[in-house]
């Protein structure tokens, strides 16, 4: 469905050339749900804008739904649906009117366009809001309108740029339920960008991690996390000497190279940390090691990002991924 090779984009700004995307290779098969994950400014949205023909690439090639984005953008546009970062329905227009107009842009006849609009209003629980202006709707309702606009012509491929950004947790859950249901029922391919780790982990079948305009990892969330070497136990001791003893005991639970110490902190990588933690703590107690904190955790995509880049995704200039910002407008990355 998508075949991008060496796709790149640079901009001239202030007399300098800034490379936003460095030769990305990306293949997406029909029916996949792929999340481009990365911090703001990573190049996710620029990549999406090139794939949706909004921005011409300055390097490489991309074929989307069988057509080249550079030489046949019209063909690409007829095959794809797009839900951007911002609310897409005009402020002065009624919701249903915007949907019907959207259908007309895609070449649907007037009657077909009205039928399709009514169907989507019903499907996305928007019928009661059909004659309202978008400015009078809540953030979640407006996002549902955006998704309806993206689906008017029954696209084979749907791009979603930060679909849940700026929404409260309940609206986020609602939007994802709608997207997943639509995908299940209509079998469309979905490519989305997000900087919410939990969303990418929970929803995507495949995660492509983008940083500084490059793809740095590509795989299923489970596989990416498994590559880190299992779960983690992290304890802190009262003294560095205790930490040394704890590290040597910890090596019996896993292998020495998977034990790390940092001052009074000790980390162990192992399988089923939740089961091993009580036994580890008992042995430390027998050895007279005073433990001040202890926790076991499964690796997250943030750990994957940390391993690959040396910094955490949530420290990379983003809004807190667990508590999304209320501002729906995020700078294009």
């Amino acid at each position: 469905m998508i075949e991008a090779r060496g796709l790149g984009r640079s901009f001239r700004t202030g007399g300098q050339t800034v490379v936003a995307v460095h030769g990305i290779d990306l293949t997406v098969a029909e029916g996949e749900l792929v999340a481009l994950l990365g911090p703001n400014g990573a190049g996710k949205s620029t990549t999406l804008r090139m794939l949706t023909t909004l921005l011409p690439p300055t390097a490489g090639t991309a074929r989307v739904a069988g057509a080249d984005v550079r030489t046949a953008p019209e063909w690409v546009r007829t095959a794809i649906g797009y839900v951007g970062q911002h609310h897409a329905a005009g402020e002065n227009h009624r919701v249903r009117d915007e949907l019907v107009t959207q259908g007309r842009w895609y070449g649907l006849g007037p009657r077909r366009s009205r039928q399709r609009a009514d169907h989507l209003l019903d499907l996305l629980d928007l019928t009661a809001l059909a004659t309202r202006r978008p400015a009078t709707l809540s953030g979640g309702q407006r996002r549902r309108v955006d998704i309806a606009l993206g689906l008017m012509h029954q696209p084979r491929l749907l791009f979603l740029d930060e679909p849940s950004a700026g929404l409260d947790p309940r609206s986020r859950a609602d939007i994802w339920a709608q997207i997943l249901r639509l995908r299940r029922e209509h079998g469309i391919t979905v490519v989305l960008t997000t900087h919410y780790l939990d969303e990418a982990d929970r929803v995507a079948e495949r995660v492509v991690i983008v940083d500084a305009g490059r793809v740095i990892a590509d795989g299923t969330p489970a596989r990416l996390k498994a590559a880190l070497g299992g779960d983690q136990i992290r304890i802190t001791t009262e003294t560095p000497a205790d930490a040394g003893v704890a590290a040597s005991i910890g090596a019996r639970f896993t292998t020495p190279e998977r034990v790390g110490t940092d001052g009074t902190a000790v980390t162990l990588r192992l399988v089923r940390a939740d089961r091993e933690l009580p036994r580890f703590l008992r042995e430390l107690d027998h050895a007279g090691v005073t433990v001040t904190t202890a926790a076991s955790s499964r690796p997250s995509l943030d750990d994957v990002f940390l391993t690959l880049t040396g910094r955490r995704l949530r420290e990379s200039g983003d809004a807190d991924p667990v508590h999304p910002a209320t501002d729906p407008v995020h700078p294009a990355s």
Partner: peptide, 17 residues
């Protein structure tokens, strides 16, 4: 201009209009 900064123009330009 208002539709451009609001994102509506972007949505329209992705269509084959």
């Amino acid at each position: 201009l208002s539709e451009s900064s609001g994102g509506q123009l972007e949505r329209i330009l992705v269509t084959p209009v």
